[in-house]
């Protein structure tokens, strides 16, 4: 059911219906009816193994669904059935996800990675072998702004540390100009100052109409940032509400916070 809370400058929402995924016979995600993005920044929390990452991957169609349907509801109306699109079409619809587990191109430098993310597909054709300068000129300023903001070193080098790769993953997402951004534990392993910067970026995005959904184990980030929190356990979202009410909810305290996650 589409919830009644609608934000002022509404961003896109994602509607998940009857989505089921199992691995070797074990049901890992079973989401009856879930709308993400009624509020600009939403959190998705829950114990390890609850299925948060899998659900996000199902939305991106990088994991196939056993059953069910995922749709994008753009603010202007209409519906895009994401679950019937191939994974590479998500970005074109503005749906973008960062990865919990570090994902990188081992042969590509930081410049490469970021230029790859921004390059329009018309420049990536086999006959367009002279278009590097054009692509670089079009996007250099934007890329440098991100590099400076996060304090990357030499962009012609490879991303070395885990933290750098994690940030690179996030910057790639930002360069895709998402309208619906999913962040899977974006600040895990980052020092406090960079966590702070990621949070700043998320707020800026939300202010300009992008919907952001964050999975995060650092609950301070969740309580600070989110307008709405979904609590997921054993494959289903069993509770939703504003941060304050989720924080104090008995089930959450017992199932999750009680385990020492505070």
């Amino acid at each position: 059911m589409v919830a009644d809370v609608v934000r002022a400058a509404a961003g896109p929402r994602i509607h998940v219906r009857g989505a089921v995924k199992s691995f070797s016979g074990r049901v890992v995600v079973n989401v009856e009816d879930l709308v993400l993005g009624d509020r600009p920044i939403e959190g998705l929390i829950g114990p390890n193994g609850a299925g948060k990452t899998t659900l996000m991957r199902m939305i991106m169609h990088s994991t196939s669904l056993d059953r069910g349907r995922v749709s994008l509801l753009p603010p202007g109306g209409g519906e895009v059935v994401l679950s019937s699109l191939p994974a590479h079409r998500m970005a074109r619809h503005g749906v973008v996800k960062s990865n919990q587990v570090i994902m990188d191109f081992d042969k590509l430098t930081i410049w490469d990675s970021l230029l790859l993310a921004v390059a329009e597909s018309r420049y990536e054709q086999p006959q367009r072998i002279l278009s590097e300068r054009t692509v670089f000129a079009r996007h250099e300023a934007e890329i440098r702004r991100h590099l400076d903001f996060f304090g990357f070193g030499d962009p012609s080098a490879f991303a070395m540390s885990a933290g750098e790769k994690k940030l690179l993953d996030i910057v790639r997402c930002l360069l895709l100009k998402p309208t619906f951004l999913l962040l899977d534990e974006p600040t895990a392993g980052l020092p406090d100052d960079l966590t702070e910067k990621v949070m700043t970026v998320v707020r800026e995005l939300a202010a300009t109409g992008t919907t952001v959904v964050i999975v995060e184990h650092d609950l301070n980030v969740i309580w600070n940032l989110c307008d709405e929190v979904h609590f997921m356990a054993e494959g289903s979202v069993i509770l939703r509400g504003d941060p304050q009410s989720i924080r104090e909810h008995r089930t959450v305290v017992e199932k999750y916070l009680g385990e020492g996650h505070v």
């Binding site: 991106m60 990088s62 191939p86 994974a87 590479h88 079409r89 998500m90 970005a91 074109r92 973008v96 996800k97 990865n99 994902m103 990188d104 191109f105 081992d106 042969k107 590509l108 490469d112 230029l115 790859l116 993310a117 390059a119 597909s121 420049y123 990536e124 054709q125 086999p126 367009r128 072998i129 002279l130 278009s131 590097e132 692509v135 790639r172 895709l176």
Partner: peptide
């Protein structure tokens, strides 16, 4: 020239991490 072009970069990306390239919108 391919090595110095967006096309070459795309080929390398497809070769080194195809799912990631796909998630960046590349039709691998």
């Amino acid at each position: 020239r391919v090595h110095r072009s967006p096309y070459g970069r795309l080929l390398i990306a497809v070769g080194s991490n195809e799912p990631l390239a796909r998630s960046l919108g590349k039709p691998t």
